[in-house]
Design a binder for these strands. Sequence first.
DNA 1: GAACCTAGTTATAAAGCTATAACTAAATCT
DNA 2: AGATTTAGTTATAGCTTTATAACTAGGTTC
Lengths: 205, 205
Amino acid sequence: MRVRKTAAVRKAEITQAALDLAFQMGPDRVTTAMIAERLGLTQPAIYKHFPNKDDVWRTVTEALCQRIDDNIGAAQDQPEPLARLRALVIGQIRLLQDYPALPEIMVMRDPGSGTTELRSEVLNSVGGLREAIHAAICAAQTSGQIRSDLDVDDCTALIISIVQGLALRLLRFRRPEDLISIGERLLSVQLLLLMEKAKVSGDSA
Amino acid sequence: MRVRKTAAVRKAEITQAALDLAFQMGPDRVTTAMIAERLGLTQPAIYKHFPNKDDVWRTVTEALCQRIDDNIGAAQDQPEPLARLRALVIGQIRLLQDYPALPEIMVMRDPGSGTTELRSEVLNSVGGLREAIHAAICAAQTSGQIRSDLDVDDCTALIISIVQGLALRLLRFRRPEDLISIGERLLSVQLLLLMEKAKVSGDSA
DNA sequence: GAACCTAGTTATAAAGCTATAACTAAATCT
DNA sequence: AGATTTAGTTATAGCTTTATAACTAGGTTC
């Protein structure tokens, strides 16, 4: 019984440890004992802060969804459609870098109990991101910054694919280091392709 | 003791059941009991065909890697770089549709024993796909079908992102149905973007 | 400083999963 | 037909993991 911290602090430590371990081991393999050990506690101590293990993941997931939503909200400050688009995409990639367990948790099956809450919450937040990107592209198209001969849904899918590609890369290699630089580069190339001809304008196939 | 099948048949059935269950439940949650039940067997029966559970996954993984390699090999029949590229991408997407557990298994952590074989084998096959796509793009560029002002690596990453996006989509929604139609559409749009200006040629920024 | 609350402990029950041992009977071989 | 092989069975050992119960002591309040 070394140190005794307040419930709020410990709860935060536990979710953080769960998040770290989720990346290291995969969410499914994280045990309450691992979390406890990492914090210098005994396994049952976890249950002083969470009624059950599922609730740990619920908390982790909610925190991550909040970050995604925050990112979407923050991007709305950008008045320029393309700047907004960039903020959305790069912001999300930054989240991947900061919380590399995000893809695994996003993809995680709902634990034990029959609830599908977790998955649907994540899907909801990510769906919001998609909508925001879609809207930004739409705006960029009407303001003539993006080729208007392209389908908005296609453009959206191509842009989002960049983020998804990086997420999958993270799932495979588990190296979050240079995600941003790669992401920025790919985004700029893709945007170049989507914008091209806005300048030329007048050569239709 | 109803029916008694030959070892070869049962082994195949077991790997198939494991593959199906991996998609339904997630590889980590598949138990030997589930596999057995699905085949109308008792749990220990599995061990008449595999020395241990890890070996089931090893077999599944090897089969999937073989398919990936086959796809890469088959695409080499296409002499035209762009047709080859298309065959590589669509072929891989078809694999996702036929074996929707592929992304999960690709991303799966190595089970129990210390071996990292599984992951590295998959990474190897997927790496081969990347190389083949890279080469096809390179060829398409030298033959003037793809804009030569773009970096080959960037193009490769953008094309692969399409596949990765679909893989992640599968991980999230678990609906393999219309992967191909989406994939074909996105690929054609992306290729259009990459080819554009090959016709115009002569307006450099 | 006594009383109270609660973060943390030890001990353990209950459940699920992998794997083995010992046995049984279907198929094959001679 | 009898002997052999082996796919499959029942039973169970052993481990891991979640969760609870009962106790202990740190920190705050009065």
